[in-house]
């Protein structure tokens, strides 16, 4: 998805993992994914650049659909569909 499309998405769950370094964002994502239903969208906020590579790989392994990311000032917004 393009950045514009991502910006227009309405996330069903936002996980703010900006206060943690690796593996914090991954653990936070794993914990939060249980709160949403298949088809719903989760957004992970991270300040750790490694998360940008981790979340797509994690999504693939867990059979979630990774939608893309937006780079904002000092943080990354990563979107996926359960």
């Amino acid at each position: 998805m393009t950045v514009e499309e991502l910006k227009g998405l309405k996330s069903d769950k936002v996980v703010d993992a900006r206060g943690t370094a690796c593996p914090g964002p991954l653990l936070a994502a794993k914990k939060a994914i249980g709160d949403i239903q298949p088809g719903q969208i989760m957004e992970v906020l991270s300040a750790d650049e490694g998360t940008k590579s981790d979340i797509p790989k994690w999504s693939k392994k867990q059979n979630y659909e990774y939608l893309g990311s937006i780079d904002e000032d000092g943080m990354y917004r990563l979107f996926l569909k359960k």
């Binding site: 690796c22 593996p23 653990l27 994690w58």
Partner: peptide, 11 residues
């Protein structure tokens, strides 16, 4: 431990 906990996140 970082690898171990990360692996659990990956199930």
């Amino acid at each position: 431990f970082i690898i171990a906990t990360g692996a659990r996140a990956m199930d």
